[in-house]
């Protein structure tokens, strides 16, 4: 079924929760620098990657996201000292959780991208889009 959808011009939906201080600014830099980044990404700006509650991620998947991307400051650089340490543990936990739920954990990706790494933002989103295209659309059983 996913093959069929791919041929019918399916484009993945990627929800991206980006931290205000680093990755969001990095995404901005990618745009200003006219770097090609993934057009499938829908950015949601959060004050800290630690603000992303696991229920946001589950709900985004349920509401139609095929992949979810979390961007935060590099470890040690968190604007709030330790928000991203919590994110790191949460995402590790959620990956195990998603696997148990029968959803490929590769659909969830966490990257540390600083405000100066516009190129990393562009490359990461393009790579993630490619990965989600390979996985195909996420469908739910009732």
């Amino acid at each position: 079924m996913s093959e069929e959808k791919k041929q019918n011009g399916w484009n993945p939906k990627i929800a991206a929760f980006l931290c205000n201080w680093c990755t969001y600014t990095g995404a901005d830099l990618a745009g200003v620098s006219r770097l090609k980044s993934s057009p499938c990404v829908r950015i949601i700006r959060v004050m800290c990657s630690g603000r992303v509650d696991p229920s946001f991620i589950l709900k985004a998947f349920k509401k139609g996201a095929d992949g979810i991307f979390i961007g935060g400051c590099h470890i040690g650089d968190c604007h709030y000292s330790e928000g991203n340490y919590k994110t790191l543990r949460r995402i590790e936990f959620l990956k195990i959780f998603l696997e148990d739920f029968g959803i490929d954990p590769k659909r969830l990706r966490l990257e540390w991208i600083s405000a100066s790494e516009g190129d990393k933002y562009a490359a990461t989103t393009l790579d993630f889009e490619k990965q989600i295209r390979e996985l195909g659309p996420l469908t739910f059983m009732n």
């Binding site: 696991p54 229920s55 589950l58």
Partner: peptide, 18 residues
């Protein structure tokens, strides 16, 4: 909204490792 997700959140805060 989701009890399991809340628990993931709660436990992620107290695991002692980075």
């Amino acid at each position: 909204l989701d009890q399991g997700a809340k628990m993931v959140s709660a436990l992620s805060s107290v695991i002692d490792s980075t």
